[in-house]
Design a protein around this nucleic acid. Structure first.
Length: 841
RNA sequence: GCCGAAGUGGCGGAAUUGGCAGACGCGCUAGGUUCAGGACCUAGUGGCCUUCGGGCCUUGCGGGUUCAAGUCCCGCCUUCGGCACCA
């Protein structure tokens, strides 16, 4: 008899043994086929792991452990994405240097990760803030610069006052910062940009070959936003001309006015004196409005006539030129031809300002809407009349090109990637500015450009990084000629370090390259990448871009970094608010009576909604408490048992009992507890029903493992354990296979029982069991007998019985006979192994 | 507004190509066991009806195809996610 199952004791012991034996180390010299299983590495925040991490990393851990047991040489590394805003914000809030805060938080994270029993190869741990690491981030930047993909420009940027920095388009959501939700305004500033647009087509096309969730690919496609159309040049008298971009060149005959963005450079020059004051006022008003305000009233159309007229190149018509803020300077050419008959926005504008409307595509019979944006035959369009839209487009583009007033063109929603930040905690640029205003990239041997210590690392708010105040760091010389120069004081954004970290894991200590050709070829691409959907258009797009650049430079051998991507669902949890003022309540301060939540202190009802866990909603569950109470194995198992990996999951701790009981049951069966002897085992071969149960389980669990259907895999292990519990003596073979299959999910329990039953080595590294096809069959089969679609009886018959025998027994069943009595049998068939179909009239 | 995903017992969720809806677990009910238990064991558990043989209903709603529909087709509703004046 053994003692009770005490998870904490067992788990820490096995964690130490795995570590001492370096059980999960990925060996470069191992000749077996490789499997690279990667997590999106975390920002080590001060709060430690949350349940989202636990879910993410448990899924990948099971993938990695299963792959090991299937004989793969597995690379499953972990590291820290520690530069950037979250780390810096935390440091400012807690009055510590970011470096110290990162070191401390990394310690917390790592201890928690090890406590979960995740099988990382810690010998490859990396940290993006380590100079040995960011040296190579800077080096890759130099490569981008050499290729002409990094450049400086005065551009309207997203300036966030509260964060004291500019942000990338991807970091701005609804006019607010992705982090913190602070207001963001447009403001022109001189900034570094990366030409991701040059890769737009490849980023789009290569999505097809990736094994990613389709909705995620769709998000990237939409973000890139490729649209095909044409540029059309309009002239204004003899002096000016401007170009518009349109996806509907076929509707050019219906262009009854043009609209320029208020920021369009031509606006000032073409405005007539009579319209001057109105135009100036509108332009000023627009520039004061934030992006957010501009988006807030999409419904109402505003605009001002410039007094100028443009010549429609297709028919010479003089059409008025307006300015309006629904035309964006940052997209296309910042100018449009307005076709109210074929575009609802233009229709609304035309109605508001009483401008003419001409239909150029015949709407379908009975159409009583406004603009018709669909297919149809061209009308009122001269040489296009009668053509369907696609043909009309082609014909118009040919005409425009022939006349030299337009051409086919593709535009993208994707903009170049704004790559500089006015913050302290990021990679410095390997760039110096010379006195003559030019700048120079530093040579590779000058790297790393270390981040200096500063007195204050808080944002200055002036648009300059805190680094600008570090005189002796800023003042330097251009190594090319020794002339005085100033260092670039912007830093790289958070995403820089994570753009290539997956490559560094393959070769973490290389001092002469970011990753050697050999290691790249050995380990890349990542076979399974597990992480949240929140990175769909940020990290995942940026990393693909860098990877393609590295590919073009011949530095990596694959076009894409992440072959298969798995998105875990979100963990949702009820949050509680007072009904009075909506302030959030901690879960401990709420009690549930008859399914209704009440505020404990006041006894008044509380308002509850289910949403994503977040600190501000006070609905965060701390994994440490669950581990303390039930152990890591139970938490791992429960996380997976709640539902499929990609589904959102409602956190409800009442279900934990189920998986905890399952582990206890396994424990008692194999080693017993303080009251019960373990179940006797036998080395005799498994036979009969037990054999069938065993092989069905192996077959089913294996299938589920391949499909990442871990919730059903666990349920099949439960079925197997229940079957073992029904036996007086358990065949050793069953215990063996059970433990091997338990190992990826509850590795500590598996190890403990593995060693308690005198098995050699680690269960975590034991081969995956195989099943015998013949054992999946049973001697008898059960058939449901349907009469006119309803089950009227069941019969058990020897397997492989001929159809005739089955049908004969089926019609002989008492209840079946009753239902067919006095009627004509019009159809009878047997669905092998399942049912008998009888149709009567 | 546009695009995408999803709606199955009291709850989380299962269901190859259309083939016995509700696996597994939680919860609940009854019994056993225990000094005790938020422990363990056994049995039951979608709803309604029942002469205890069985019958009828049931996968968001309404139609349809089929011997047979959670699964396929048509039309709606709801929820979640993404995009949001992108020309």
């Amino acid at each position: 008899m053994a003692g009770a199952y005490i998870p904490n004791e067992i788990e820490t012991r096995w964690q130490q043994r795995w570590e001492a034996a370096e059980a999960f180390r990925a060996d470069d010299a191992d000749p077996r086929p490789k499997k690279y299983v990667l997590d999106m590495f975390p920002y080590p925040s001060g709060d430690g792991l949350h349940l989202g991490h636990v879910e993410n990393y448990t899924i990948s851990d099971v993938v990695a452990r299963y792959a090991r047991q299937r004989g793969f040489n597995v690379l499953h590394p972990m590291g820290w994405d520690a530069f950037g805003l979250p780390a810096e914000q935390y440091a400012i809030e807690n009055q510590v240097h970011p470096r110290d805060a990162v070191a401390r938080n990394v310690g917390i994270f790592k201890a928690q990760m090890q406590r979960m029993g995740w099988s990382y190869d810690w010998s490859r741990e990396i940290n993006t803030t380590d100079p040995d690491y960011y040296k190579w981030t800077q080096w890759i930047f130099l490569k981008l610069h050499e290729k002409g993909l990094a450049f400086m420009a005065e551009v309207p940027v997203n300036w966030c006052e509260a964060l004291g920095t500019v942000l990338a388009n991807e970091e701005v959501i609804d006019g607010k910062s992705e982090r913190g939700g602070h207001p963001v305004v447009r403001k022109p500033m001189r900034q570094w940009l990366l030409k991701i647009t040059e890769y737009a087509d490849r980023l789009l096309e290569d999505l097809d070959g990736l094994d990613w969730p389709s909705h995620l690919k769709q998000m990237q496609r939409e973000w890139i936003g490729r649209s095909e159309g044409a540029d059309v040049t309009f002239t204004i008298g003899d002096e000016h001309e401007f170009t518009v971009f349109t996806t509907r060149p076929d509707t050019l005959f219906g262009a009854t006015f043009c609209v320029l963005a208020p920021e369009h450079p031509l606006v000032d020059g073409i405005t007539t004196d009579a319209q001057r004051s109105g135009v100036d006022e509108y332009v000023a008003k627009t520039s004061r409005r934030s992006e957010r305000d501009r988006m807030a009233d999409v419904k109402t159309k505003s605009g001002v006539f410039t007094g100028a007229f443009a010549t429609n190149p297709v028919n010479g018509a003089q059409i008025p030129i307006w300015i309006a803020d629904y035309v964006l300077m940052g997209y296309g050419t910042g100018a449009i031809m307005a076709v109210p008959g074929g575009d609802q926005r233009d229709w609304e504008f035309a109605e508001t300002f009483d401008l003419p409307i001409i239909r150029t595509v015949a709407p379908p019979e009975g159409f009583d809407g406004q603009a018709w944006e669909g297919e149809g035959a061209a009308i009122n369009s001269g040489f296009l009349d009668g053509m369907q839209v696609p043909e009309a487009k082609r014909t118009m583009i040919e005409w425009l090109e022939e006349k030299g007033v337009g051409s086919a063109r593709v535009t993208y929603r994707l903009r170049d990637w704004l790559f500089s930040r006015q913050r302290y905690w990021g990679e410095p640029f390997p760039i110096v500015h010379r006195e003559d205003g030019s700048y120079a990239a530093l040579p590779a041997d000058a790297l790393p450009i270390r981040l200096p210590d500063v007195a204050s690392y808080k944002p200055t708010g002036t648009g300059e990084s805190p680094l600008a105040a570090v005189e002796d760091w800023v003042r330097t010389t251009d190594p090319a000629d020794g002339a005085p120069a100033l260092r670039e004081t912007n830093t790289m954004p958070q995403w820089a370090g994570s753009c290539w970290y997956y490559l560094r894991f393959a070769d973490p200590f290389n001092t002469s390259a970011f990753c050697s050709k050999e290691r790249d070829e050995q380990w890349l691409p990542v076979d399974v990448y597990v992480g949240g959907v929140e990175h769909a258009v940020l990290h995942l797009l940026y990393a693909r871009f860098w990877h393609k650049v590295l590919f073009d430079l011949g530095l990596v051998h694959t076009q894409e970094p992440f072959q298969r991507l798995v998105n875990q669902g979100m963990i949702l949890c009820p949050s509680y608010q007072t009904e009075e003022n909506g302030s959030y309540l901690r879960i401990e301060d709420v009690e549930i009576r008859d399914g209704t939540p009440y505020v404990k202190a006041t006894g008044r009802p509380a308002y509850s909604i289910v949403q994503k866990m977040s600190k501000s909603k006070k609905n965060v569950i701390n994994p440490d408490e669950i581990i303390r109470e039930f152990g890591a194995d139970t938490l791992r198992l429960y996380m997976l048992f709640m539902g499929p990996p990609d589904a959102d999951k409602l956190w409800d701790r009442s279900g934990i009992q189920g998986v905890y009981r399952f582990l206890n049951k396994a424990w008692r069966l194999v080693v017993g507890d303080d009251r019960r002897e373990p179940r006797p085992r036998t080395s005799d071969a498994t036979s009969g029903a037990a054999r069938h149960a065993l092989h069905t389980a192996i077959h089913g669990v294996t299938q589920d493992m391949e499909a990442l259907a871990y919730n059903t895999a666990i349920s099949k292990l439960m079925v197997l354990l229940n079957a073992m519990g029904d036996l007086d003596t358990i065949p050793e073979e069953m215990v063996d296979a059970f433990l091997r299959m338990l190992a990826p999910f509850a590795p500590h329990m598996a190890e403990e029982l593995w060693s308690a039953t005198d098995r050699e080595g680690f269960a975590s590294l034991a081969d995956w069991p195989t099943y015998d096809e013949s054992a999946l069959k049973t001697d008898t089969e059960e058939y449901a007998v349907q009469v006119n679609g309803k089950v009227r009886g069941k019969l058990v018959i020897a397997a492989e019985s001929p159809d005739e025998a089955i049908l004969a027994e089926a019609v002989a069943l008492a209840n079946v006979a009753e239902h067919i009595a006095g009627k004509t049998l019009v159809k009878q068939m047997v669905v092998r192994g399942r049912l008998v179909v009888l149709v009567v009239k």
